[in-house]
């Protein structure tokens, strides 16, 4: 019985096999590297001979007086990202979907995705040019309007807003692509039928368009939660300075100074493992929740 069933799906197994091998070889074989979080890894001794130190690196992380601050900073930035950035590509994709003029649609699509290709060095450089108190465009404007200069770049108050805005500016267009692909699958006849029934544009959006991309939205959200504590290193590193470090230092930038630039791989692996575990918990919870609501989820 089982054999018959296996035989029936033999093509499916054959198709899955190369991918499965890929994951086993390139993802699971190297995974022994995680154990260096519990060792004092020294490249010369190798993975197996480096001394075992148990939870030393986790101790260091959790007992660091900065830990609470780091966690708070990372958490808030991640939350901002999900609350303010995540819905934006969906919104823009829906707006683009409503745009009837085909050429305009293509032009807008092409333009909004350009910033994705600019490195953070360039984007941050431009942000500096706009926001600096020394002749920055925004501050010149504020002064002309009779206001006072605002120290956007060297203050705790503005840091999160600017980081999130930069992400919104850079990645929104790129983020729409996947939703546009999902929307392309909607049967135009559904809209026609809805119009016949007298449904207005908003109702069409609500009852046809949105359900078509709902599962994509949910999957992307779950996957995003898996990387909840990854805030992106380069952007924050470039925006950080003495005056905003209290709110701006996150796990990724903190680990950079001690881990990467000093070659302390064990400690940075430990921090990475902590982040991954948080991600795993969130993914499992979110997936369970999604299934409860009748969604497919990611596994």
């Amino acid at each position: 019985m089982l054999i018959a069933r296996l035989m029936r799906n033999r093509w499916l197994y054959l198709m899955v096999l190369p991918g499965l091998l890929y994951f086993l070889i390139f993802k699971y074989w190297p995974m022994y590297g995680i154990f260096i979080a519990f060792k004092d890894y020294q490249p010369y001794l190798g993975f197996w001979d480096s001394p075992f130190v148990g939870f030393k690196h986790f101790d260091r992380l959790f007992s660091d007086p900065n830990f609470i601050v780091l966690f708070r900073n990372t958490f808030i930035l991640a939350l901002y990202n999900i609350l303010f950035f995540f819905p934006l590509p969906i919104l823009v994709a829906l707006m683009l979907n409503e745009l009837r003029h085909e050429l305009s649609k293509r032009i807008v699509q092409t333009l909004v995705y350009i910033p994705h290709f600019m490195s953070w060095v360039v984007v941050v450089g431009i942000a500096y040019m706009f926001l600096t108190t020394e002749g920055g465009f925004i501050n010149v404007l504020l002064e002309k309007l009779g206001g006072e200069k605002v120290t956007f770049l060297v203050s705790n108050e503005w840091f999160r807003t600017i980081i999130t805005t930069e992400v919104m500016w850079k990645e929104t267009g790129w983020g729409t692509i996947i939703f546009l692909a999902a929307l392309s699958g909607v049967d135009p006849q559904l809209y026609e039928a809805a119009r016949m029934d007298g449904a207005n544009r908003l109702r069409q959006l609500w009852h046809i368009t949105l359900p078509a991309i709902r599962s994509t939205i949910i999957i992307l959200l779950i996957l995003r939660l898996g990387h909840f504590l990854d805030t992106g290193f380069e952007q924050i590193f470039l925006m950080l300075n003495a005056m905003n470090r209290e709110v701006g230092e996150v796990f990724d930038t903190y680990v950079y100074a001690v881990g990467i630039s000093q070659g302390q791989y064990s400690f940075s692996t430990a921090v990475g493992l902590f982040k991954s575990i948080v991600g795993l918990i969130l993914v499992v919870l979110a997936n369970r929740l999604a299934k409860k609501f009748g969604e497919e989820g990611i596994y």
Binding site: W29, Y32, I34, G226, G272, S276, L280
Partner: peptide, 10 residues
Amino acid sequence: SMLFSGGMIP
């Protein structure tokens, strides 16, 4: 495999 990775050196 998305959440956990062996890291650069392995």
